[in-house]
Design a protein around this nucleic acid. Sequence first.
DNA 1: GGATAGAGTTACCGATAGTAACAAGCAGGT
DNA 2: ACCTGCTTGTTACTATCGGTAACTCTATCC
Lengths: 216, 216
Amino acid sequence: METSQREDQQRAAARRRKELLEAADRVVLRDGPGASMNAIAAEAGITKPILYRHFGDKGGLYRALAVRHTDGLLAGLRAALDAPANRRDRVERTLDTYLAAIEARPQVYRFLMHPGEDSGQPESEQGFDAGRQSAPLLRRMGEELAQVIAERVDLGTGGEELARVWGHGIVGMMHAAGDWWLRERPCPRETLVRHLADLLWGRLAAAGDRTDGPGF
Amino acid sequence: METSQREDQQRAAARRRKELLEAADRVVLRDGPGASMNAIAAEAGITKPILYRHFGDKGGLYRALAVRHTDGLLAGLRAALDAPANRRDRVERTLDTYLAAIEARPQVYRFLMHPGEDSGQPESEQGFDAGRQSAPLLRRMGEELAQVIAERVDLGTGGEELARVWGHGIVGMMHAAGDWWLRERPCPRETLVRHLADLLWGRLAAAGDRTDGPGF
DNA sequence: GGATAGAGTTACCGATAGTAACAAGCAGGT
DNA sequence: ACCTGCTTGTTACTATCGGTAACTCTATCC
């Protein structure tokens, strides 16, 4: 059995690429999304042009980095979404999976979602990049959820379009609420999950008007 | 009546600042969020250091720009939110106000929300800035909505916290769905508004499971 | 031994944010 | 008349960053 030279080289390149990505990960998590290509190359023990040979440009590197993390998160969400349970439980578990992920690794979250903000010391403002990572993650999650909704919920005619609207809308709700919650931590995670599920369960429509209060 | 020299100067400075912001607006809307300080200064008929004297740094300029647009949008949303109508109508009108705004001026929207993406020709990737504008707008809208919810909806004890969760969640839903809709335009605006309002009205909870389809 | 291919380096380019340092107009006080 | 102080404006510069061209080194295959 002869592993051809070609195959060997390709495997070596893939391994190298993975090493570079891990180095980039360390730097980005340490220096924030403003990490420079020079810094990443130095962390990997090499120099810039090699990074460019592997990833094309900075966007390519950051995209590869984002895909790594995004895939991990999406796998978890898919599991929660497809679990054998009633709908309310599935929704709560999915919300909780997402929130637990961003709670556990806020640095990664900020890299994926808020690539414009430094995470560490108040460094110079310039040079951050890869702003376009957040939208793809949100969009991928939205499409994923839309598909699950369309598959498992009976929405009648035109349900496919409705499912997509809801998929993106629910993901956006989860994202914005999670972002706010991560910043202010106003309540424990389960509470947030319950509140959001309540919202999706129509509690806003069911609640009565307030008639008390000053002036009424 | 002596207008003191000091007051005159301050008014002149404010007027100048407004002119500069208008020039910056034109450039940003033409060149996308990657507009350089040099380009903005040239459009205003001056040179860079003056911009820096007025706005401190690029973030300051972009922040001032964002505040301008954000205030306009928020005023419209407040009006729709406080209109004398039943809750469903208010919700639909608010959603429609937001979506109409981003539909009418997508360039402004992209500047506020996706500062990382060029809008025009595929220019060089570097130099965009002011990534942190989108979060403040979303947060301000979330807090605004939370306040209206807390004021007008009876949510029982702990309602204030619930209102904030919902405020941010609903704003995120609106934002993500709007972003997706603006990109793909899969349906007319009224349809999107109705779908989102239906989601908030608990139609997801009320719908039955699908039992048809291949394999079941 | 000599050609070939990849990994790696140095040294550079062009653009950008941001900053001195300096010049010109214009008030008011002496 | 002259100086002082303030604002507006300029030119010319620095530092940094993304990205690239051209070169070297090493190992492998013929």
